[in-house]
Amino acid sequence: MARRPDEEYDYLFKVVLIGDSGVGKSNLLSRFTRNEFCLESKSTIGVEFATRTLQVEGRTVKAQIWDTAGQERYRAITSAYYRGALGALLVYDVTKPTTFENVSRWLKELRDHADSNIVIMLIGNKTDLKHLKALATEDAQSFAEKEGLSFIETSALEATNVEKAFQTILAEIYRIISKKSLSSNEAAPTTIKEGQTLVVGAQDSSTKKPCCSSS
């Protein structure tokens, strides 16, 4: 599928990837932005960053994704990145119950540091490890419903549902943004009250990077 150059977009959405260390955040990101999976990836120190431009509900949306280190010790650095994020992908590992148990702690982190209307999606990653799956989909599903989060299970390794996960959260953010802009007064997206992260109608098309390959 041909895509527009990187710099042309209608919306820019900042999204953070959070969750315990080793749940696969960096590989979800590389799968989504570069369609790559690296078995020999290094642990993330601090924050990493990647973008991808895609079509969401007929609009060109640029997703600016911040991948954060999962270890507790790094929260002092990573929590600064929650500010201004419109979406958060909260990832756990379906084979490791503790990573799911810690989801509540991550939600608290978001409540403490992120904007109150941030869209949160719960992601159970590593579904390819079927024989090791330790967490029932239904349990996670009902937890997500209770907390008002959307939920999906993914496998970054097999590229299952990764695209869908990002599409879903970006669409949800889009719906909220466009609703807001309608209610604020006019229909045009240019009136959105934006943080520094939501850049509306940016027209910087000066340079062109090689496009990330979509699946």
Partner: peptide, 18 residues
């Protein structure tokens, strides 16, 4: 467990740690 989780994610491209 934290250490073990990161062992294979440290200098993964070096023969000694591979």
């Amino acid at each position: 467990l934290d250490i073990i989780r990161d062992i294979s994610r440290t200098f993964p491209s070096h023969v000694f740690f591979q």
